[in-house]
Amino acid sequence: MPSIFSRIVAGEIPAHKIAETDDYLAFLDVMPTATGHTLVIPKKEVDYIFDLDDDLYAGLMAFAKKVAPAIEKAIPCKRIGVAVVGLEVPHAHIHLIPLNSIADMNFYNKLKPSQQELAQTAALIRQHL
């Protein structure tokens, strides 16, 4: 059964996309820890990030590196935090999270933005790509 992220890639589930290439996709987390919290995935479904082949892994990091500055320009913050947890969805992914304090990285404190708020945030970030 495809992961929820593979279903997003296939267009079966809508997402607030930030950036996309043939191999990678960045989209907003619908239950973010901070406004602008973005997930970056390879389109190829691989459960564990360290099971990605070297080229796909390096490409994922390079893609995330291009997305992070756009988030930082769009969302006032001190830095963009990077996290790989890998337990919640069986599809390798990187969390890019705008940080003003370490508390912004608390995965137990989730925001509940509306679809309209997510759409506005995604549009704002895309303006900086």
Rank of each mutant, 00 (worst) to 15 (best):
A74C: 06
L39E: 02
L129G: 13
L99R: 15
D22P: 05
P113A: 06
F63Q: 08
M105C: 09
I75Q: 07
K65W: 01
L60K: 01
L99T: 15
P98Y: 12
A68V: 00
D55H: 00
H16M: 06
R126Q: 14
L129E: 11
S3L: 09
S3I: 09
D55Q: 01
S114P: 07
R7F: 07
I8W: 07
H93F: 05
A92Y: 02
P14Y: 13
N100H: 14
A68Q: 00
G59Q: 01
T38D: 12
V30G: 04
L96Q: 10
G86A: 11
A70I: 07
P98T: 11
R79L: 07
Q127C: 03
I8Q: 06
D22T: 13
L87H: 13
V9N: 10
D22M: 06
H93R: 02
A62F: 05
E45Y: 00
K112V: 02
P14R: 14
I18G: 12
E72C: 01
V67F: 05
E45N: 08
V84Q: 01
T38R: 09
A64M: 08
D55V: 05
L118P: 04
V89S: 00
K43R: 09
H93P: 05
I94R: 01
A34R: 15
K44I: 01
I94F: 04
K43S: 02
A123E: 15
D54K: 05
M61K: 02
S101C: 14
Q115K: 13
Q115F: 09
I94L: 15
I13C: 07
H128D: 10
K66R: 15
N106R: 12
D23G: 03
I41V: 15
I80F: 04
L118G: 00
T121G: 10
L118F: 00
H128W: 12
G86H: 09
E12T: 14
I97E: 08
Y48R: 02
D54Q: 07
R7G: 04
Q116A: 15
F5T: 03
K66F: 03
H93D: 04
Y108H: 12
Y48L: 02
K44M: 01
I49E: 00
I71F: 02
H37S: 07
I18N: 13
V67G: 02
R126A: 14
S6P: 12
A62T: 11
E45R: 05
E88F: 10
A58G: 00
L25K: 03
D47S: 12
P32S: 11
D51L: 00
L118M: 09
K44A: 07
R126F: 11
A74K: 05
H91M: 00
R7P: 06
L129A: 08
V67S: 02
N106W: 11
S101W: 14
E45F: 01
R7V: 04
F5P: 06
T35K: 07
A83R: 13
I18P: 13
L99G: 10
V85T: 11
A119V: 12
N106S: 14
P42I: 04
I97Y: 09
P2C: 11
